[in-house]
Amino acid sequence: MKYSLKLAHLYGDLLNTYGDIGNILTLNYYAKQMDVQLEVDVISLNTPFKANEYDMFFFGGGQDYEQMIVSKDIQNKKQELSDFIEDGGPGLAICGGYQLLGKYYIGADGQKISGISALPHYTDSQDNNRFIGDITIKNEQSGDTYHGFENHNGVTYLGENEKALGTVINGHGNNGEDGGEGAIYNNVFCSYFHGPILARNGELAKKMLLIALERKYPKANLSQQKSLEIKPTY
């Protein structure tokens, strides 16, 4: 392979609800087609995340108990993760990962659980209700339609310099009120989508890989990579 990228799978052994691993498998699938060797490290409890050692990250969701444990440990990684994000490093965060990058979310017993405020959103909870079902959104910038499956109690409100990953066409989205789903902040993409999101929406996987390649290889000619055709999978 001509290029190589290193991905940090944040808390991959704790937050892995429903097919999250599929996002990494999908990234690897398209990476190969783009002549990229993708190396994956699980960065979990008590292992530091070093911003300069990684080209991208993936941060999945999990059960309440595991998320609570992660919310404590991730405070030790707050600085490096924020640096990476501010520097334009690409990442994908789903469900719990999405919530933990923000200011806070509400745990199962109603307690407020702190995130790392790397992104300016916050997440409240709904009373005895979950948003469950198939969802379709439209990314306003690219015009791409993304398909997924949402299953969340949390309602997320975006902050300054954050825009939604897409506008809800069918389904509920971040909070069922403002018509947005997910978040984009610098080169970090957040969503509640299961599916997994990258398996159903290969364009997003390609976009993330290209951002990582352009950061790591600023002088390379990536026209082959840019011209990769993503066939519909859903």
């Binding site: 799978h9 704790l14 999250d20 409890l45 059960q63 595991e66 444990i69």
Partner: peptide, 18 residues
Amino acid sequence: QMAPANTDGLLCPKCQQI
């Protein structure tokens, strides 16, 4: 050995390590 990344229930119930 350790379990693969997409395995559930890997937290030690006593001290919450892997």
